[in-house]
Each structure stands twice: as C-alpha cells, then as structure tokens.
Nucleic acid binder design. Sequence first.
DNA 1: AGGTTGTATAGACGTTTGTCTATGTCATGT
DNA 2: ACATGACATAGACAAACGTCTATACAACCT
Lengths: 116, 116
Amino acid sequence: MSNQGQGCCEPLSEEPLAKERAEEMATVFKALGDPVRLRLFSMIASKPSGEVCVCDLTPAFDLSQPTISHHLKLLRQAGLVDSERRGTWVYYRARPETADRMAALLASVSADRASA
Amino acid sequence: MSNQGQGCCEPLSEEPLAKERAEEMATVFKALGDPVRLRLFSMIASKPSGEVCVCDLTPAFDLSQPTISHHLKLLRQAGLVDSERRGTWVYYRARPETADRMAALLASVSADRASA
DNA sequence: AGGTTGTATAGACGTTTGTCTATGTCATGT
DNA sequence: ACATGACATAGACAAACGTCTATACAACCT
C-alpha cells in the first residue's frame, strides 16, 4: 500500500512539482544517478537481513575505500540509507520510506497515462 | 551470478543490480536528478492531454531557451519523454514504461522491507 | 522570396562531481 | 599503552555538468 500520509507524495501526474519540492526530490534521484551508488543501494536493499557491513560492500567494487565511503555518505544524506556502528563495523540499511516516496512519484505517471 | 538479460525490472530487493543494468538505470535517475529536469518531466507528465508544447515549458523557468532545450534533450535520451514536431511547434510527452520501470525498482525495496 | 517566430546545435566557461592519496578517528586485542 | 584494523574526513585534480550567447534550422506568413 502506498504510504501517502503526512503531506507526502503529490503524484507527478496531477499537478506539477513545486520548485522547492522538486529540489528535494531531485537530490534523491541524483543520489541514485550514479552507477556505483545505485549498485550500493541495491546491495544494501537486497539483503534479507536488512543490513550490510561496509566491509562487505567495499571489496565488491574496483574503487578505493574512501570512494565507497563517500558514495555511502551521499546515499545517507539523500535519506536512502541509514548507518549504525556496532563495534568495529558499520552497518548500512535501506530506508524504505524514501524509496517508496520516489516510487509513488514515478508510478503516478504511468498510472495516469494508462487510465487516460 | 547469472543475471537476467533484457527483461524488465529485476527488483532491487531480490538480487543486486548487475553492473551493466545499473549503468542504464543510473542514466535515467541522473536525468531526474536535476530540479529543472524533474519539474519539466513533472509538467509534461501532469498534462491531461498527454503532451506539452515546448512553447509552454520554456517561459515557466528563469532560464534561457537553449538551456531548456538541452534539458529536454537529456530527458529524451534517458527515455523518459518523446518529442514530436507538428508544424511550428514541438510537443513532448511522457513515456510511462520508463517511469514505470523505475517505480517498480524502487517499490520493490519498500515492499520487501515491509514484508520482512 | 524575404522576414519572423519556435526550437535545436555549437562553443565557451565556471561549478560540481567522482576519484585518488594521505591522514584522522574509533574500537579491539595484546 | 600501544599496535592494528575498519571506516571517515581532507584536500587535490581531471572530467562532467549546467548555464550562457551566438548561430543554425524549420515552418509559417505575408
């Protein structure tokens, strides 16, 4: 079910996005707009346990550890993931509300077109 | 790790995105990752008629006409919109399949988390 | 044909982004 | 206490991006 509570999610197909709202949303899309970050987010979101250790993410790429760390930071700032330190390791988990908001926004487009 | 080919929408939450697929998808998200383009897409998608004349889009922004034209080109290249010239004017319309694919990808995240 | 208007392309330019190396910080174990 | 391993931050730098002006192209209208 869609979680259109709390002043969330005006659908794209009903009225155009206000300028301010567009900037918020664009930030999230921009975070997903890099192949490395999209794969990172994918790896995090696809874990049945709900979380992944950075130590499992870093070696999956041909990039330096600081670069991965930087991408994770952008995902976090966009509200797509959360991180928690437990002992030596840091775990990242997806924030479904954010993904859901974006999904709802995009889904409204095709829904509207289909019914028209 | 065998990955499916040209089909649509492997959900994020089942298995991580393959590298190639991630680059395709990231291109679309990147296109939506700019406030101007997101608003343009929103304006196009929200038209009940299904299409908008460029002449209606351009004056809605405080940007030069070539800049808007450039953004529309990126949206087109990302597969988010189509354009058609009719007489003097060019009309843009949304391509719901593309928006839908991205929505499905994002929705799978929250769906999985909710059920888990 | 020539002038006018709508849209796209070309080239330039400052800003942002993605990556790196070097270093800092935090928790652990000896 | 100190050394070690995991992650984050700082600073540098080339590549990509967003914007502009100038110009080209396309369709209309005298």
